[in-house]
Design a protein around this nucleic acid. Structure first.
Lengths: 285, 285
DNA sequence: CTTTATTTGTAGTAAACTTACGTAAATTAT
DNA sequence: ATAATTTACGTAAGTTTACTACAAATAAAG
């Protein structure tokens, strides 16, 4: 299991800190990387507190002292998480907003990586393995995720399709039967139309899988759900990253299915890969 | 390899070091983790050299001084455990392959984040801002990325469309004119059909943007390229992550365009957001 | 309003790190 | 081989950094 990242711990604890400690926390979270390179005096000055306050802050987070804290912070940064609550500012340059967006995405991925239920993943892989037929449903931005899922899963020699048209989805859901898997992808899990279609699919006796927000209406009507908790983007400039998390989870599921199929299945995948060769210019190097 | 691990660098350089420096190196390599926690005096004593020798050793490896060196060493230790052994094994359990896939994706994002050319991003944002019309083209897995791009960019009040059908793409490319932007998304940049279409678009006087592998045939026919170098997946079980990197880059571009449009444009985005409200179940909390 | 607890800062001290300089070792040339 | 020159290394001093003890200030409780 992954240990919770120091930066996340700090931002979680932010409300529980007293005045000067939270000042320190904010300065560190604003630019953790530069924090690892600065002295206790510099950090104290930046946070407008005294040096011992910085020291006390470090000890609160189970560090021996300031140098030890910096070390732990540096390690936390490597695992991919930087600029946690650095929002894009209206006057940001390319060189600022580019890493911020990457880091925001990376941060969300790391969070879901540590939170996702492995037993749920296993359950979903089970359902997908047993499926006679798989439908990936999504609308709007999730439609692209569903399309990508189709592209991954057709390799398993199963009847797979994706649909981003709600009328089509509704008709297919109503004709479902035992052994069919309807895989719903939705960021909010609150789109009425989608929830209704999931209910129809469920009523038809099919398996309904929801890749969506926990406790959402869609989650409630699903047979199995994969919970994805990604912070709502309050910031106007910050993109929605749930799509990307969804894609990675579908990668995980596809890998799970491949592994279950065993090594005998690899030649089939190889064949598909090779089929594309004649469409490409050969590599010179 | 571009980001060689500090520990490997030290052991590579071991024969080139002089007497006292190699003493220091051996002590550090024997237990790098404890080295990150010890003072310069303790390390000097353990290596039986003077403190300045340790300091000189650090500077030789491009550190500002001893503390900076310890920081870099600590980072190297973390990246070693997390990112090195990231291939999925045939006998991996859910609890193993799930974090591996997330980490693999995160690793690639971090690599591209550090490598991407900000001036290129700026150039592409320029072109998109000036565009009279934007076409996002992709086939196969990149088709989903193109579809997602359409979903992001239509918000800018521009004629935008995506196409995953090569015949459609070919026809549209031939009818292009100055002011049109054809945005090609391709992992390899070597699909003959796609390169041909890009050539047609280019010949029509339109701007061709390539989000693809550097130095690929597609990159060569593009007006501007955004290079994405993601390692080829030699491992059968590891998913292709370039799609995800492409999506994040499109997020970056969309943010760039939003920022250029300025704050007057925010109400428009808000309006689009609000338009979806009636389709959703309201949140209870 | 006083007392008590908590938070925060000041000042002093110890430790850690770096720099300058001088000596020793090694290399090269004579 | 030995002098000259370069390179390596350590001593000592200076500077920065971090920690501790204590006191002032603030907040909470009686």
């Amino acid at each position: 299991m992954h240990s919770q990242n120091l930066i996340n711990i700090i931002s979680d604890q932010l409300p529980n800190l007293n005045k000067s400690e939270s000042k320190v926390a904010r300065v560190i979270l604003a630019d953790p990387d530069s924090a690892t390179r600065s002295s206790i005096a510099a950090l104290a000055k930046a946070a407008e507190v005294s040096e011992p306050s910085v020291n006390r802050f470090c000890k609160r987070f189970n560090a021996a002292g300031f140098p030890d804290f910096k070390l732990k912070l540096a390690k936390a940064l490597v695992s991919g998480v930087r600029f946690v609550n650095r929002n894009v500012d209206p006057d940001d340059e390319v060189s600022s907003y580019t890493p911020k967006i990457f880091d925001g995405t990376i941060n969300n991925l790391a969070m879901v990586r540590d939170k996702i239920s492995h037993s749920r993943v296993n359950q979903v892989v089970d359902k997908l393995i047993q499926a006679k037929r798989i439908y990936f449903f999504g609308v709007g931005a999730s439609g692209s995720v569903a399309r990508d899922a189709e592209n991954k899963f057709f390799r398993f020699n199963l009847p797979v399709s994706f649909h981003d048209d709600v009328l089509m989805q509704r008709m297919l859901a109503s004709t479902g039967s035992t052994g069919d898997v309807f895989f719903f992808i939705s960021h909010t899990g609150r789109t009425k139309e989608v929830v209704e279609i999931a209910e129809i699919a469920r009523a038809s006796g099919s398996t309904v899988i929801g890749l969506t927000a926990p406790d959402s209406p869609l989650a409630q009507v699903s047979s199995v759900t994969l919970d994805v908790e990604v912070p709502e983007n309050t910031d106007e400039y910050m993109p929605m990253t749930s799509r990307i998390v969804h894609l990675v989870i579908l990668d995980v599921l596809a890998t799970g299915v491949t592994l279950r199929r065993g090594p005998d299945f690899l030649p089939h995948l190889e064949k598909i890969k090779n089929s594309l060769k004649p469409t490409r210019y050969p590599r010179s190097n």
